[in-house]
Write a protein that binds this DNA or RNA. Structure first.
Lengths: 210, 210
DNA sequence: TAGATTGTTAATCGATTAACAATC
DNA sequence: TAGATTGTTAATCGATTAACAATC
């Protein structure tokens, strides 16, 4: 496991998943080495930026050669925290929750979705793929018994904050939040928002600009 | 309709949907005026930043008073291009496509989802909510006959680029892309990516940092 | 008028790009 | 050794913060 000391800026962190994706693809195609220039062309960045980014966490290539794909990929995977497994629950078994439960990539990277929760008795007791759907009443107990550390929140806006409160109370420290709401959480809980409507509005802006 | 001349930076544009959300909520609660300071507190920004942002497109408040919520909300709505309606198709009627077809907010803002397309004969011919699901073979004709200007892409990675090519060929100029792939499109086509896996990896980074 | 808050300029900070010596 | 490409420093650019005069 590669260790790194320097602080990685959030700007760089936001680019890391993309680096990881490209390096994984290169690795799958058995490409062994890549230069910052080649990678920049592929990703639409500058070579300079890539070298700065990679240096910000100390990953190093070889002068006159480039970067070893496998090595760099593994270094970035470690920095993203993907060198350890995570246990995850999805709250809300609607279409969005179900869509996410099918993401193959999650399981491949050691992110295991253990259960889904819902209040709809028509859904509770069934399974989605191989994932069981339980009633919200059983959330607290399940989280404690299964060492859950990530919660994916796919509930209606009206109950978003309320459920976030419950989640934080049980000790979950990370929320992937699909609710279009800025959740208020204790400062030791990290939240990453996915706001599909915001993305659409950015798109209409770009479209109407032309 | 408010007109604006200065160029708005992408950094600001990415914040506009959030401003719009907060101002809509204030408006719903019949709040008439807001100061940059109050809004900053609510949104977790600085008052200075808010004033700079709003000034970058010429929206103005009143010195000594603040901003009129309704007026500012409408100005931002116009800048986001939401003063005109859009016709939209969703490609891929899996869980993700279906989830998005249920977003009430889209319709409220004049973004009309006219149809969904799929290759699965088990899905074609049915409806999702009130939205019909057609076969991909009928895509070209439907787009032409219904003045579609936005496409929401929810297909498997393997066929993402191929379908993007088809979309661009018919003349659609905007794609909301859920496929974890950097699409190659003509330069007059705008693409906004939503990458759920990338968001999750940002989350695991933040979680493992602690 | 006095108080509040904007619009706007200046100062600071951080991110990107350019350049090049180090070195494989 | 010559060529390539990194790591890293310096220069530039852009975004955020601070400060304050303008003015409602």
């Amino acid at each position: 496991m590669q260790s790194y000391s320097k602080k990685v800026s959030m700007t760089v962190v936001k680019r890391l998943p993309k680096y990881y994706q490209y390096l994984s693809d290169l690795s799958d195609r058995d490409v062994e080495k890549i230069s910052s220039k080649e990678l920049a062309n592929m990703m639409g960045l500058t070579a300079s930026q890539i070298r700065q980014d990679l240096n910000s966490f100390g990953a190093y290539g070889q002068q006159g050669y480039g970067y070893k794909v496998e090595e760099l990929k593994d270094a970035i995977r470690d920095i993203l925290g993907l060198n350890q497994p995570y246990n995850c629950v999805i709250i809300g078994s609607g279409n969005l929750g179900r869509a996410i439960s099918h993401y193959e990539r999650f399981k491949n990277e050691g992110i295991h979705i253990k259960a889904m929760f819902d209040v709809d008795h028509g859904r509770v007791g069934k399974t989605v793929g191989k994932i069981p759907v339980y009633h919200m009443d059983d959330l607290e107990q399940f989280v404690k018994e299964n060492e859950i550390n990530i919660c994916i929140l796919c509930v209606p806006r009206e109950v978003g904050q309320e459920i976030a409160n419950r989640i934080c109370k049980i000790g979950i420290k990370a929320i992937l939040n699909f609710v279009p709401l800025d959740l208020t959480v204790p400062e030791d809980v990290v939240v990453e928002n996915v706001n599909i409507t915001d993305s659409l509005f950015t798109l209409t802006f770009l479209l109407s600009e032309k």
